[in-house]
């Protein structure tokens, strides 16, 4: 394989149900995962609301796609960076987020958390380190 692997970063800045952005982003991530690139996701601003636990949309008649984040590990998408300042501003902490795990193939399939809480400065560094940034 001489193909170069590129770093793809999906930026999620929108809350889950008010607009279609969040769900579409997740769909694009799942489709894009077929291309074997180095994929990671960033959640900042209202995007952090996508990962809040206890979502229940049955009265809305729309799909609750929050469980799908837990399938990302199967698609080899194992880095979900969540911005601490965005959580703080919204009165949230890491405990308010869904538990999203992946199995590390290189570590005897040990279960590891996909969510990594990072500072705003770290988020900026991560963004600046990408080949492609896709925003939603």
């Amino acid at each position: 394989m001489s193909e170069t692997v590129k770093k793809f970063f999906y930026v999620n800045r929108k809350a889950p149900y008010g607009t279609i952005f969040a769900q579409e982003a997740l769909e694009v991530v799942l489709i894009g995962a077929a291309f074997d690139q180095d994929v990671s996701l960033g959640f900042l601003d209202d995007g952090v609301y996508q990962l809040v636990k206890g979502q229940d949309t049955k009265d809305l008649g729309v799909k609750n796609f929050s469980p799908t984040f837990r399938a990302l590990g199967d698609y080899d998408v194992t880095k979900l960076f969540v911005e601490k300042e965005s959580l703080d501003e919204r009165g949230l902490s890491a405990d308010d987020l869904d538990e999203i795990m992946y199995e590390d193939e290189d570590d005897d399939w040990a279960e590891k958390p996909s969510i990594r809480i990072v500072s705003r400065a770290e988020m900026a560094d991560i963004m600046a380190d990408q080949d492609v940034v896709l925003s939603f």
């Binding site: 799908t68 837990r70 399938a71 199967d74």
Partner: peptide, 18 residues
Amino acid sequence: DYYDEYQIAPAVRVLIKA
């Protein structure tokens, strides 16, 4: 069962791996 848990039908390579 996979759909129940994750709300998606997995891609073929994901299905086979699972």
